[in-house]
Nucleic acid binder design. Structure first.
Length: 577
RNA sequence: GACUCCGUAGCUCAGCUGGAUAGAGCAACUGCCUUCUAAGCAGUAGGUCGCAGGUUCGAAUCCUGCCGGGGUCGCCA
């Protein structure tokens, strides 16, 4: 149960009873917790929004609404403040019922059917299959996966998808690189790599595998004879490595779509036909891009998509000079494929370097779906990798980029996942290999985990004293919880469903992380009160009713911490080492 | 030149898609361990929300224009 939703429906009913039918007004009516405690538990702007339509001034309207709201048994007091806010002071019973509900349904508390089982496709990671994942991939991976968890949590039917870019020049380069390793092993001559090739040692194993299966028969062949085989072997091997990397942070996609396959089944021709039919492509000439050196710019007519109709600054080419399809053409076909699979919305998680690419794909989707398909791109900004405050330098050419796997080995999967969600996606993120392992309150991972550890130690102590936490949860007297810190926690608990829903609505999983931090903070605060006043500890030996009430509070905090952590894909820590 | 993201306390960042007196954490200063784990808590101090306009009952939030920083811009994927 979401008490904010509950009160809001009551308020909306009031608005409707006054003759407000306009959804643009109704949708704006809020029932939200005010920042200031003295403004009550829930504040609504109903009078401010409806006064104009009802020809009344906001405060007068508020007065008349106040009379109605006062009749509700869960509302103790109604106050009118400022320009016409209506502040509601709720009866404690609504909070107590909320608590009982949490203890009853446990990990289901906060889940909802907000998403109405609508089908959502989230495409994330989609790292090129040319090598192991590096740390830059990790952010998008964690973000996408946590977003998928979040949307599932509030009732969407989510597909986790990976688009394999297995069709371009980089795959030919990959195959060539493996072939060089193949020669190296068989002839014992040292491998030399051109600039575009991949010198990483991880390709040696692929070459070995080919030798094991097919022997040395490709040595004497010409490139056109071995390239296809090497492409297949190496992309398969790379995808295997990437899937292993992902499994280390518990990421498993439901669906892998191959670009090569999209091309081979003729989907590009199909989508181009479609775009042609609705008049969004033409044969035209592009100007040279401004602000760049245009030395070898060569003006020529080519097949263009009218992305300027959708806010892009240029129309975008679908064909290259050699008359083959561009990456954009294949990607259009891929999104057409997703469109045909009947999703109600598509979400793409991309790196910041794809920013300039959004408008054209948006345009494609609008064009093929007649603007009906919802589409959202979440760009993840760069991760700055530091080591004790100093930037770690990475160079692709030297081959010393930091792999995701090495970071997991060093800090662990849970820390990696948590830290990746301590910023909103469109802000850059600093990741310090040393600081994230510190066990202090500068480190939000440990701060949250530590709350859980403390609750566990309480469990142990309670059990040692013969208190059974699972007994008689129905008969807990929540009214004994009168301390401000206790009430704060209860109110935070009541906000959880609202928080997840807001996070889901905005596609922003980081809000869950911040909520968890607040919850941990509220708990640490309560815990510490016991230092100053033993009466405020959780376990009071000669007052079992109070003890049970307080322990149930800890149980609820633990339930919500676990739920929140499971959304961001982090395991709760039970004991600190 | 265009597009896009960012600009909030000395530093790193939240700010619930327009609400009331803008919030945390570091760092600084003051307290709290014979105590359920101090890996923590409480408090003090710190702000012209980059600048200037506009929209309205109301703007850090939306719009426009500047300033500053990151990313991107056919024939890569």
């Amino acid at each position: 149960m979401n008490i904010f939703e509950y009160i809001r429906t009551i308020i909306i009913d009031v608005a409707k009873s006054r003759g407000i039918e306009d959804n643009t007004i109704l949708d704006k009516i809020t029932a939200e917790p005010p920042k200031e405690e003295i403004h009550g538990d829930i504040s609504t702007n109903i009078a401010l929004l409806c006064s104009k339509k009802l020809n009344s001034n906001p405060r007068a309207l508020a007065e008349s609404i106040k009379v109605v709201l006062n009749n509700n048994i869960y509302i103790d007091n109604v106050q009118i403040a400022g320009p016409g806010f209506i502040n509601l002071f709720l009866n404690k019973n609504i909070f107590y019922e909320c608590c009982k509900n949490v203890l009853k349904i446990k990990s289901k508390y906060g889940r909802s059917n907000y998403g109405k089982y609508e089908k959502v496709n989230i495409e994330y990671v989609s790292a090129n299959p040319t090598g192991p994942m590096h740390i830059g991939h990790a952010r998008g991976a964690v973000f996408g996966d946590s977003l998928a968890n979040l949307l599932q949590y509030v009732g969407y039917d989510v597909t986790r998808e990976y688009y394999i870019n297995d069709a371009g020049q980089q795959i030919i380069n990959l195959a060539k690189s493996v072939y060089i390793r193949y020669i190296e092993i068989l002839t014992k001559k040292e491998a030399i790599f051109d600039e575009d090739l991949y010198p990483g040692e991880y390709l040696i194993a692929v070459a070995r595998e080919i030798i094991d299966i097919d022997g040395d028969k490709y040595l004497s062949m010409k490139e056109e004879s071995w390239i296809q085989v090497f492409k297949e072997y190496s992309t398969n091997a790379m995808m295997k490595i990437i899937k292993e990397d992902l499994s280390l942070i518990n990421i498993y996609h439901d669906n892998f779509v191959s670009e090569e396959n999209i091309k081979s089944i003729g989907l590009i021709e199909k989508v181009v036909q479609l775009l042609n039919n609705n008049g969004s492509i033409y044969e035209g000439v592009l100007d040279a891009p401004k602000g760049q050196k245009n030395d070898n710019w060569e003006s020529r007519p080519q097949l263009l998509f009218k992305s300027t109709l959708f806010g892009d600054d240029l129309d975008r080419p679908l064909k290259k000079a050699d008359n083959t399809w561009t990456y954009f053409a294949a990607d259009s076909a891929y999104h057409y494929d997703k469109f045909k699979r009947n999703y109600s919305s598509l979400i793409n998680v991309w790196g910041a370097d794809h920013g300039g690419y959004i408008k054209r794909i948006e345009g494609i989707i609008k064009s093929i779906s007649n603007s009906k398909l919802k589409f959202d791109v979440k760009l993840c900004q760069l991760v700055n990798l530091n080591k004790d405050g100093k930037p770690v330098k990475m160079s692709k050419r030297a081959g010393n980029f930091i792999t995701m796997r090495s970071v997991i080995d060093s800090v662990g999967a849970d820390v990696l996942r948590f830290i990746m969600l301590t910023r909103k996606n469109d802000a850059p993120l600093d990741f310090d290999l040393v600081k994230v392992k510190e066990q202090s309150k500068d480190n939000p991972v440990y701060y949250v985990q530590y709350a859980n550890v403390r609750i566990n130690s309480l469990y142990e102590k309670a059990i040692n004293q013969g208190i059974n936490l699972n007994d008689e949860l129905d008969n807990i007297n929540f009214e004994l919880l009168t301390n401000i810190s206790e009430i704060n926690i209860i109110k935070l608990i009541a906000k959880w469903p609202r928080q997840v829903e807001a996070a889901a609505k905005a596609n922003e999983p980081h809000r869950v992380t911040f909520y968890l931090y607040d919850m941990a903070s509220a708990f640490h605060s309560l815990w510490s009160l016991g230092n100053e006043d033993p009466e405020l500890r959780f376990i009071i030996e000669d007052n079992m009713d109070l003890t049970r009430a307080r322990l149930s509070l800890a149980v609820m905090v633990k339930i919500i911490l676990s739920s929140g952590l499971s959304i961001i894909g982090v395991k709760p820590v039970d004991k600190l080492s």
